[in-house]
């Protein structure tokens, strides 16, 4: 049995109703590699779309914040379809992910390795492994991380393949994937809303939301809700001169 098959067998045996396989995989990965947290995300070409599995609160927070900031190792791993990471998030002057790094350090995370989840060139997301002390994964750990990456792809395809065929025409997602995506629904609504109010495209509207959330030190979801409720008006800087 390969390591990937062993992982799948182990999480399959623990699987009960109500606990997604994706969470079980993250917990299992964190335990076997002795990590502070593991998070699994779903992405498309537009970027980070949902946190579909975590080993706990720390990983959950660090994945959400990457979406809010629009930067971080999970995003870069999926975008580039390569393993990315940092052995010491606190070191160096020119940081690759300045905002993410300070959030990670504040949460007690000093190192991270993010691997892409993809199938034949189709990028599906990432699996990120967070560590509480600086240092790199050794060769054995890298092999294990690679096996978890394989298992994560199998879990994703398995979930998506289990949708009844009648639903396929409706672009269905498995509930374990669809629910985390729906969690972000208001952010996308607010993007559409703001694009009309500020007369900008969707990409720029999302950037405006992000910039406001970052400057106000608030979550993107809270800002989105305020925009939709009409409690908050965001204008592009250029239009203030008009």
């Amino acid at each position: 049995m390969t390591m990937t098959t062993q992982i799948l067998a182990a999480i399959g045996a623990q699987h009960r109703d109500g606990q997604p396989l994706t969470d079980l995989l993250c917990v299992d990965c964190a335990q076997s590699l002795g990590l502070a947290g593991v998070g699994m995300t779903l992405m498309n070409d537009a970027g980070h779309q949902a946190v579909i599995g975590t080993s706990g609160a720390v990983a959950s927070r660090l994945e959400e914040i990457q979406f809010d900031l629009g930067e971080g190792p999970s995003l870069d791993a999926s975008r580039s379809d390569r393993t990315v990471g940092s052995d010491d998030l606190g070191a160096g002057v020119l940081l690759r992910w300045p905002a993410f790094s300070s959030a990670a350090l504040a949460a007690g995370i000093c190192a991270v390795t993010a691997v892409p989840l993809s199938v034949g060139g189709v990028r599906l997301g990432s699996l990120s492994m967070y560590r509480s002390s600086p240092g790199r994964l050794d060769v054995q750990q890298q092999a294990t991380a690679h096996a978890y990456r394989g298992a994560a792809v199998v879990v994703l395809l398995h979930l998506q393949d289990r949708i009844p065929s009648v639903d396929l025409t409706r672009d269905a997602l498995h509930p374990d994937l669809g629910a985390p995506v729906a969690h972000r629904a208001e952010i996308h609504q607010a993007t559409g809303f703001l694009s009309v109010k500020a007369s900008v495209g969707m990409t720029e509207a999302m950037l405006l939301l992000r910039a406001h959330a970052f400057a106000a030190d608030r979550s993107l979801l809270d800002v989105a809700r305020d925009v939709l409720a009409g409690r908050l008006r965001i204008h592009p800087e250029e239009s203030e001169d008009d």
Partner: peptide
């Protein structure tokens, strides 16, 4: 399946 997942997400 992977492409279908992406389309659903988009």
């Amino acid at each position: 399946i992977a492409e279908q997942l992406q389309t659903a997400l988009d």
